[in-house]
Nucleic acid binder design. Sequence first.
DNA 1: TATTGTTATACTCTATAACTATA
DNA 2: TATAGTTATAGAGTATAACAATA
Lengths: 151, 151
Amino acid sequence: MKASGHEPIGAARPLAESVGWLLNEAARELTLRVEEALGDHDLRWRDYGVLVVLEAAGPLSQQEIGRRLAVDRSTMVHIIDELERRGLVARGRDRADRRAYAIELTDPGRTLLSEVLHPLTAQAHDRVIGRLGEEDRAHLIRILAQLAAGG
Amino acid sequence: MKASGHEPIGAARPLAESVGWLLNEAARELTLRVEEALGDHDLRWRDYGVLVVLEAAGPLSQQEIGRRLAVDRSTMVHIIDELERRGLVARGRDRADRRAYAIELTDPGRTLLSEVLHPLTAQAHDRVIGRLGEEDRAHLIRILAQLAAGG
DNA sequence: TATTGTTATACTCTATAACTATA
DNA sequence: TATAGTTATAGAGTATAACAATA
């Protein structure tokens, strides 16, 4: 370990200088703000994620939505149950595979998304990353995308 | 809303382009890698956080540690219980306030941190942010610090 | 009165395993 | 035999509220 050619990695650093820590702090705060905003409409971060995925990709099976959001299919059942109960999504049938649903956005779901939820979450985002200059913001997105791509 | 002077914030964007999403993805992956590494020593992200805070700040009360890690004091009890049981921290008494403990790193705790845990977590970090060039890495840290400072 | 640590408790979130209907 | 959805259940993690000792 000592011969790894790196800076002294065992050195005592304040937590506030660790990338991992900072990354988690930033993510937590942003998630918190977004959930605050969504809370007015009794929605969670996850619910919004489902709606956004459907908006971008079109009808998907529950399992496929779960795969994209890293949520187990048994957990997806409850999430879709609730969104369906509120009329934001509908459980259509996949004609090619009758085991699977084709979960789709309803018109009210699509409208809520574009007229209320997107603006709200964008505002929440801005309250956090608005602290950054335009250039830093673009930089941040590019770097994060690079990290995500490597996963 | 329409007259806010912004880009069309209601536009359908793939989730993968949202800062919030990317931030959470990056944080989750990094945390996962770090926990993988710590798991070999039966420690969690939180436990490591406690040790690092103590290493950087010296003896602190349970509540103060919790405040810095955003953990409730009732939850801190269990975390410190376990770390104490394993001899990594000790519950010293705060002479100025006999209600509070002065939680301190033991010598084995300090040694484990510098000889094992710091190197392990640094390696885990590197496996994630090593994908970035030196310049981007510095940039990322600076930007995240800026975000954190604004909180 | 307020605060530290503690305990018991309850709640949220999530995954596991077993089932059904289809494939 | 394998897979989508479902259900019941169990586990982890956490916070809330009340209590004792001390401030």
